[in-house]
Write a protein that binds this DNA or RNA. Structure first.
Lengths: 151, 151
DNA sequence: GATGAAAAATCTGTGAC
DNA sequence: GTCACAGATTTTTCATC
């Protein structure tokens, strides 16, 4: 269970993950021992899943971002699993979500430039199995990607 | 500039951000001092933007995820800025991207359950300015969200 | 079973080379 | 880029509520 102290902990952790445990604990109103033990419990329970260092892919030469909506062949029962398994192996596919409705999946693809995207699209996307339709949108900017949960 | 050593550093950092600098440095083939100094430089340059603790919102009671595609009123020059400014203030909107093409923006919204989503949609989404169309897809799962850049 | 305090082990960041 | 050290931080242990 996640109680009120956990929520305070998580709020601080999401707000300033780079700060020391001692500082976070103080702001969450507990000693650092308590903070560490609770955080450990939350990690074990999977509430806190991982640490991530956010890297700016534009600074690393990836200037193109494309959001793809994919529709799959519903006559093939294994279509979903096999499509997902193949898509997650493509390094340039940095995010995959699945949906309920007309569209089955969304892929976020990054590429160095348009020719590079063209190559990735032909070699790694069009070869994914069981697709019946793809719709592409070029992404201009990521405005907010805090992904922090309201607590 | 990002040289070859930086790339090795970033590869290790993305692969295991929770490890100590000493371990990461060893795997990247440099001493920990060098690693720290290079990482500091990359942070200053904005290549490494932030640390994030990934929290499982399902474990915190957010079971509904909806992806919204929004079209804006192109007759209003300030539509874009005002829409974005308003949308980023909604806590349940955890991600915003903007596009080139038919669709102008994509919002990812989380909610505790369907009634909660209904409430957020009516109170916080439908009240956003300058929208001419919204298309919603319910998200079933996030399969891959590594968002790590191929290096 | 959860908390607080303090000691031991580890890690980080800086200065000299 | 390397080495070595001082300071900070994390982690463990033990006593307490």
């Amino acid at each position: 269970m996640v109680d009120d102290a956990d929520r305070r902990l998580l709020r601080q952790l999401q707000a300033a993950p780079e700060d020391s445990v001692a500082d976070l604990a103080e702001r969450a109103g507990m000693t650092h021992s308590t903070f560490i033990r609770r955080l450990e419990r939350l990690r074990k329970a999977g509430v806190v899943k991982a640490i991530r260092e956010e890297v700016d892919w534009q600074a690393l030469g990836y200037s193109v971002e494309v959001s793809l909506r994919v529709t799959l062949d519903k006559t093939e029962p294994r279509a979903f699993d096999e499509f997902i398994a193949a898509a997650r192996e493509v390094p340039e596919v940095i995010s995959i979500g699945t949906f309920l409705g007309r569209v089955d999946a969304r892929l976020l693809v990054i590429a160095r430039d348009l020719p590079d995207y063209q190559r990735i699209y032909r070699e790694h996307i069009l070869t994914l199995p069981h697709m019946t339709d793809i719709e592409a949108l070029m992404q201009v900017a990521t405005i907010k990607d805090a992904q922090s949960v309201p607590l």
